[in-house]
Amino acid sequence: MLEIIQEYWLLLLIGEYPHGKLGGLAMTLIISFVSLIVTFPCAVLIALARTGKPGIIQSIANGFVHSVRAIPLLMLIFWAYFAVPMIIGFPIDAAFTLIVAIVIYQTAYLGEIIAAGITGLPKGQREAAAALGLGYIPTMFRIILPQAIFNVIPGIVNQLTTIIKESSLGSIIAVSELSYVMLQVNSNEVTKPLQIFGILAAVYFVLCFALSQATNWLERRISSRRTGQVVVEAVA
């Protein structure tokens, strides 16, 4: 096991960079953070549409969330792999299509978490804002969303863990992230799959376990300062 780490640790961390493409753990982290950052505003919009007045926009948002929840991420990745280059008209790095697929997928899930934050706030918050004469936009962006998002910070961090795990699907479309790199190592070494996938699992475990401990810590910190009730059903 140690020889494998000694021989491949740099590949594991940054891929073939600087002689080739960036990859490995660095790529996994970049894909995950970029996905979360792009997902966030989309998820806020979905949450606003889902919790807002009934109408065409809400129906579209509902349809989007339900449809995305009904499709395996792998199918979305397959679609993105072919459809994205077709739509933009030129070939593009597979990492980009992976991010597109994760963003679409996570918009549905993160949107639900933020929506739960909004509906969990006491009704009085909205009524107080209305009583002050604030319109919809300032009410939502100045009063409701700041509290709602604060309340669901643990859920957002938890989604980062989920995204890191989901980014491993990049290995299926040859994105040079952590899992793909280790699959390559495995086909070089052939005889040590248990060690190689053990190391791979351990790296994910350390990363995700640390993040989930952080989530628990945040949950404890925030639940004492929370305004209102937040109930998020299990999502993954």
């Binding site: 890191i164 795990k165 005889t191 996938f197 053990g198 994910y204 995700c208 376990f209």
Partner: peptide, 23 residues
């Protein structure tokens, strides 16, 4: 429980498929 929650499902599949075979 923590192993299965904090390692991607895909990697859990790899561990069984590639790893278990050598045993």
């Amino acid at each position: 429980v923590e192993y299965h929650r904090n390692v991607p499902m895909l990697i859990q599949l790899f561990v069984w498929y590639f790893g278990f075979a050598v045993v």
